[in-house]
């Protein structure tokens, strides 16, 4: 095993070029567990902890979150600007994990239970990949191709996650069987975008990858009073039911598919009620 410790994205790309198949390491909260348990034993590691530019973020008309932005930064420093993302970050693991884990890691690991992913999905986020040929940007939906599968190519790393900053309430709700350090059984994000007159609904832990409840969004948008940012209870319940239909949950040791689907309906209804005060 070898380790490269670059300080810039350019150096990191060089290291990836020199070490084909190298594993990227950021916060370590996923990869180290795999190594500790002997489930993965990478030949080479490119450690990104020192790449300062990856830890930067900008919040303007567009939000750009460097891949190295930690959950703690989202939770504490961006709670006003990005409330749903901050709420999601607060539910990730423990304070120690949130101090180490990164948004790039969450996106790159692409776990179906990744807590920030439904929020990023609802925000129509895109993923910027830096590679030997330059940068390319993929919508999150195109980047995450399946459970723990992404469209990243050899030699690439995630530079940032970016999205247009919407105007309107943003909410995140997550069901877990414990009040801290818990993997999501089901979660949802609701992003009210007053400018585009859309309500983004993202679902987590109820499919092989983060889902958008598109039918629910389509049904809801024309029923929202966009000046008052309100919708009536019927519209909300209809959207919640369509969201539950959009879920593709499985039964595993954490929950049954039926319960997960049930959660989606309840969570979306509650989130929309909070966001669109009927």
């Amino acid at each position: 095993m070898t380790i490269a410790r670059p300080r810039t994205v350019a150096d990191a790309l060089d290291a990836l070029g020199a070490l084909p198949g190298a594993q990227l390491l950021a916060g370590g909260t996923d990869l180290m567990v795999e190594i500790n348990f002997g489930r993965r034993s990478p030949d080479d590691i490119v450690a990104l902890r020192r790449v300062a530019e990856l830890g930067a973020f900008e919040v303007g008309e567009e939000v750009v979150l460097g891949a190295g932005v930690t959950y703690s930064v989202l939770e504490h420093d961006l709670a006003d600007e990005l409330p749903a993302l901050a709420a999601a970050a607060r539910t990730v693991g423990s304070p120690q994990i949130r101090n180490a884990g990164t948004v790039g890691g969450n996106v790159g690991t692409a776990s179906p239970a990744g807590d920030t992913l439904p929020v990023l999905a609802a925000l129509d986020a895109a993923v910027t990949l830096a590679g030997p040929e330059g940068d390319r940007t993929l919508p999150l939906d195109a980047f995450i191709t399946g459970p723990k599968r992404t469209a990243i190519r050899p030699g690439e790393l995630i530079r940032d996650v970016r999205f247009r900053r919407p105007r309107g309430p943003q909410l995140f709700l997550k069901v877990g069987p414990r009040n801290a350090m818990v993997i999501s059984v089901a979660c949802c994000a609701v992003v009210v975008d007053a400018d585009r007159r859309r309500v983004g609904i993202g679902l987590g832990s109820v499919g092989p990858r983060p889902l958008r409840a598109t039918a629910a969004e389509d049904a809801l948008a024309p029923l929202v009073d966009w000046d008052a940012l309100r919708a009536d209870r019927d519209a909300i319940q209809r959207a919640a039911a369509l969201s539950a239909e959009a879920a593709e949950p499985i039964t595993d040791h954490r929950a049954t598919a039926d319960y997960r689907r049930h959660c989606v309906g309840v969570l979306v209804e509650r989130a929309l009620t909070r966001g669109l005060e009927p």
């Binding site: 380790i3 410790r5 390491l25 916060g27 370590g28 909260t29 990869l31 180290m32 567990v33 190594i35 500790n36 590691i45 450690a47 902890r49 020192r50 423990s94 304070p95 120690q96 994990i97 101090n99 180490a100």
Partner: peptide, 16 residues
């Protein structure tokens, strides 16, 4: 100065 779990930190990545 940041509280983390030592089990999730690769020792060789903590060199500086």
């Amino acid at each position: 100065g940041v509280l983390v779990n030592a089990c999730c930190l690769l020792a060789a990545d903590a060199v500086d």
